[in-house]
């Protein structure tokens, strides 16, 4: 078991780092600590939110491409932690629903959510996704690491077996994606509203889109200059 001690900043940080080491090394005792010890869930939630912020930083190119101001950039990063938390809550709900419908197992929602929160701890290294050229490769490694932790945790806690855990998590993800694409629910509007709120820009544009517009602008300016030069001569 791990000791959780919030009495000073130092002991809090020690508790956090030792627990994260446990998550990352597939230690079942770390899961038990989160479930059984006071403050364990708070540390798991902190890990989840920090993972979201770290991954947000790793994937921040889209914020730069949309020319988001510094203050808005920081707000967006902080908010990405909360959005990440909301995403995991929803995904856990989706997996829980499927496990009820398909396997008739009575796995508690909190068990699935806690497993997910712990398993996403490799994304604390999400900032490494910033690395040029190797970033996407690193992201895939972190995702696989996270999935493996999740499967080990869920299997060891519920005993449903590795393949069932894998099937449930994948089907849960597919179900969530389908729900998010139901036109009547208007999730696109929520996404756009959130983007405007956090970034202060009108809508999200992809990197290629903004760069192509910049190049078109350069071209039209240069043509105009050339025409002007022709007239002057």
């Amino acid at each position: 078991m791990y000791d959780i001690d919030f009495s000073t900043i130092e002991t809090t940080l020690n508790s956090f780092f030792s627990l994260v080491r446990g998550f990352l090394s597939f230690d079942r005792a770390a899961y038990q600590t989160v479930v059984n010890q006071e403050g364990g869930m708070a540390l798991a939630l902190a890990t989840l939110i920090l993972s979201g912020i770290s991954l947000g930083l790793g994937q921040s190119v889209v914020l730069f491409a949309n020319r988001v101001r510094r203050r808005r950039f920081i707000i967006s990063l902080l908010m990405s932690g909360l959005v990440f938390l909301a995403g995991v809550l929803a995904w856990s709900g989706s997996v829980w629903l499927l496990s009820r419908l398909i396997t008739r197992l009575s796995i508690e929602y909190l068990t699935i959510f806690t497993g997910a929160a712990i398993s996403l701890s490799p994304l604390l290294f999400g900032f490494l996704v910033l690395m040029p050229y190797l970033g996407n490769f690193i992201y895939q490694i972190l995702r696989i690491w996270a999935l493996l932790i999740y499967l080990v945790v869920i299997d060891s806690v519920t005993g449903i077996g590795f393949w069932w855990a894998l099937s449930m998590s994948l089907l849960g993800w597919i179900l969530l994606e389908l729900i998010l694409r139901i036109p009547a629910l208007k999730f696109d509007r929520i996404r756009n509203w959130y983007w405007r709120l956090t970034t202060g820009t009108t809508h999200r544009q992809e990197v290629d889109e903004v760069v192509n517009r910049f190049i078109s602008e350069l071209r039209s300016i240069v043509i105009r200059m050339q025409n002007q030069k022709g007239k002057d001569e």
């Binding site: 040029p132 050229y133 190797l134 990197v207 190049i215």
Partner: peptide
């Protein structure tokens, strides 16, 4: 060079260089 070859950053970087060459 890695930034130039990266699908995420490359468009911005290469557009900057193309502008300078232009």
């Amino acid at each position: 060079v890695a930034v130039s070859g990266d699908g995420r950053y490359g468009p911005i970087y290469n557009a900057g260089i193309a502008r300078a060459i232009g």
